[in-house]
Simulated assay, not measured.
Amino acid sequence: MLETVAVVLMDDVTPFEFGVLCEVFGIDRTEDGVPRVDFLVCGEEPGMPLRTSVGARLTPEYGLDAVARADLVAVTGVKLRDEDQYPVAVLEVLRAAVARGATVLSVCSGAFVLGAAGLLDGRRCTTHWRYVDQLAERHPDALLDPDVLFVDDGNVITSAGTAAGIDACLHLVRREQGSAAANAIARRMVVPPQRDGGQRQYIELPIPECTADSLSPVLAWMLDNLAIDHTVAALAGRARMSERTFARRFVAETGTTPHRWLTMQRVLHARRLLEDTRLPVEDIAARCGFGSAALLRHHFNRVVGVAPKDYRRTFGAVHSGPELERSSSGAQQNR
């Protein structure tokens, strides 16, 4: 569950990264169907203004003692400093949070704070590509992946640059509160509801500057037509491009290939249907464009990590009954 979120601030905090956490977790979006979260902004001295990287100041309302009741403890990006210059009290509450089973999340250079607390040793993690070498040098036992947007290592989640922090936060909402909540927040923030955490932080091909050439209309059409087969040739024709240009442009705009992007969107749609409907898995597979329950199970398990049946048992809004296990023909599904 994700009922209480504590953001731990210290001097030289980066406001945008703090704003990301506020946008995802701190705003009451119950009118959009998002469960309410108790949002705590914490510091060593409550009521004492802290420096930011842009000259303004932020004042935490709560002390570090409030962190003890948080399900999620988040650390923003901060100006890099020597290992022994991070506040000892902050490092202690982060270690205590992990020890009691809470999740900790860092945005951008906040990974260095987790590292100073000893929370990255033996764990998969990431940070902004500019700081990868420094983090690896300071924490050689960390399993650092320099190319991804974020890493979910159970109760320790690290993200790359600012936009990747949004991805990591929405991923956590999706993990803890379901697809509907993550999608509702993403719509309000006007950002994609899900980018694969494994895609690269930066892309060698530049994002096209000409908005008339954007693939957004094609992407929207694909989302509206997940059930039908899509070939690169057909999609390139719809975009009025050669196949080669379309493939390059697609990677530039989405960070992945058409096939991987389409597979991910189909899995996300399957998640929503598993959560919100009583459709048999065979029918869900057809609606999502997988063709068969076996193919859906293969991709769903690879992306989500569990079988559709197990996911529905945990996250389904309606309890499964016999009709969920069988298609209209009576053949047992979802094994």
Rank of each mutant, 00 (worst) to 15 (best):
residue 5 V to L: 06
residue 20 V to D: 05
residue 22 C to T: 07
residue 23 E to T: 00
residue 25 F to G: 04
residue 26 G to P: 11
residue 28 D to M: 01
residue 29 R to G: 13
residue 29 R to W: 05
residue 30 T to Q: 06
residue 47 G to T: 10
residue 47 G to A: 12
residue 48 M to S: 14
residue 49 P to D: 09
residue 51 R to N: 10
residue 56 A to N: 10
residue 85 Q to I: 06
residue 89 A to H: 03
residue 90 V to K: 02
residue 92 E to A: 15
residue 95 R to M: 03
residue 98 V to G: 03
residue 106 S to G: 08
residue 111 A to R: 13
residue 113 V to T: 13
residue 113 V to C: 07
residue 120 L to Q: 10
residue 129 W to M: 13
residue 135 L to R: 09
residue 141 D to H: 15
residue 144 L to G: 07
residue 145 D to R: 15
residue 149 L to V: 13
residue 158 T to H: 08
residue 160 A to H: 09
residue 162 T to P: 03
residue 165 G to K: 05
residue 173 V to P: 03
residue 176 E to F: 10
residue 176 E to G: 06
residue 178 G to D: 07
residue 192 P to G: 10
residue 192 P to A: 12
residue 195 R to F: 10
residue 198 G to R: 12
residue 199 Q to K: 14
residue 200 R to M: 13
residue 200 R to W: 12
residue 200 R to C: 09
residue 203 I to A: 12
residue 210 C to R: 15
residue 223 L to K: 14
residue 224 D to W: 00
residue 231 T to L: 04
residue 237 G to V: 06
residue 239 A to M: 04
residue 240 R to C: 14
residue 244 R to Q: 13
residue 245 T to K: 10
residue 251 V to N: 04
residue 254 T to F: 03
residue 257 T to Y: 06
residue 258 P to L: 01
residue 258 P to A: 01
residue 258 P to N: 04
residue 261 W to N: 00
residue 262 L to T: 14
residue 268 L to V: 01
residue 268 L to T: 01
residue 271 R to K: 14
residue 275 E to R: 05
residue 278 R to F: 02
residue 279 L to F: 05
residue 279 L to V: 00
residue 286 A to H: 01
residue 287 R to F: 03
residue 291 G to S: 05
residue 292 S to A: 13
residue 301 N to K: 11
residue 304 V to F: 06
residue 306 V to Y: 00
residue 312 R to C: 09
residue 315 F to R: 06
residue 323 E to N: 04
residue 324 L to W: 11
residue 332 Q to C: 08
residue 333 Q to G: 10
